[in-house]
Amino acid sequence: MSELTVQPVAGKADRRAFVDFAWTAYAGDPAWIPPLKSEVHALLDPRENPWFGHGRAQLFLARRDGAVVGRISAQVDELVQERMPATGQWGFFDALDGEAAAALIVAAEDWLRGQGMARALGPISLSIWDEPGLLIEGFDEPPMVMMGHHRPEYRAWIEAAGYAKARDLLTFALDIRIDMVPLIDRLIQAGARNPRIRIRDVDKARFDAEAAIILDILNDAWSDNWGFVPLTPAEIAYAGKKLKPIIIADLVKIAEYDDGAGFKPAAFMITIPDVNSMIADLDGRLLPFGWAKLLWRIRKVATTRVRVPLMGVRKAYQSSRLASQFAFMLIEYTRRVCVGKYGIHHGEFGWVLEDNQGMMSIAELPGAGINHRYRVFEKTL
């Protein structure tokens, strides 16, 4: 019988094999979008990703007869420990069969125990801000940018290892050419008449400052959410650098509110073109011509799909009517630009925690429906 081994990643060759294994795991899957290899390598590199300023990780490869048949990461985030003590995580989970899957999960759990962890959450790759959750519904539709795709078998393999549901994360799809329903439209129109509310585009000429404003609101707005980990200043700068090339100024909006002491940022919504549809034919490579293709496609907004990966309203307003007003004004003003200027017709919101009642109001938008469901699993170690 062929022998299965699981070993820690050691050296550049192993790291390349770890990244490249995705091409083996999803060979022939029409819904899988090959990620840019340079982006995955940067995410896993402590010299580039500031997550490693408060986190540590170990990567593992499973091999059978010398061939890679699976991969997994195990990680401990010190910022997670402040909210979920003794909780470690694992991610980048892919395997060709149940035996490899089981052995990989055991290796990740053993490493987490060695780090003093008593509970495991997964899959999370590497943090809640990257690609959290396992796809359990929506296998036929390719994921949008910054969302994951997985094989249907993975759920049973994870549950067989003793894991149960912690939370579900949802994405909503909608045809944005459909006008708002009258009730929501009246709320938007009332906001438009309110001189204390204004909605503006992000200013790319001062992008670093704008990114800091947006992520400051995000840290405040999401701070009570399950799984939340604050972004550090270094991560805010890193996120801004990564997002800037794909930001279209009039698709990123900030709501400002005059609280009696002048206008201050109160809410934001980031809408980005679906870069996945722009890189699908690059096979993970930017060289020799991938960069030129991608930059041209972004500049021309060469997609009919957009995603809202991040949206937030400051906690001070979340229990008031203003929260809904800000949110729906941001959505509607962006919708008009998408449809009228860029000819975009398909939008996706998410992910949204299934128990986030405020954000679940997205389901009230005309034509909206859940198109993907991702599950984060948990287990006591």
Rank of each mutant, 00 (worst) to 15 (best):
W157C: 01
W157M: 07
E159C: 04
A161N: 07
Y163E: 08
A164N: 11
A164K: 13
K165C: 04
K165L: 04
A166L: 13
R167L: 13
D168H: 09
D168C: 13
L169Y: 15
F172G: 11
L174Y: 08
I176C: 12
I176R: 00
I178T: 14
I178L: 10
M180W: 07
V181H: 09
P182C: 05
L183A: 13
I184E: 00
D185Y: 06
L187M: 14
L187C: 03
L187R: 06
Q189A: 11
G191P: 06
A192R: 12
A192K: 14
R193T: 12
R193F: 05
P195S: 10
R196S: 15
I197H: 15
I199R: 05
K204N: 09
K204Q: 14
K204E: 12
A209V: 09
E210D: 08
I213H: 01
I214E: 01
I214P: 01
L215N: 02
D216M: 00
D216K: 07
I217H: 00
L218W: 03
L218S: 07
N219I: 00
A221F: 11
N225P: 08
G227Y: 04
V229E: 03
L231E: 01
T232F: 06
P233E: 02
P233R: 03
A234Y: 06
A234S: 13
A234D: 11
A234N: 09
G240Y: 07
P245N: 03
I246L: 13
A249P: 13
D250C: 02
L251E: 01
V252S: 02
K253E: 06
Y257C: 10
D258N: 13
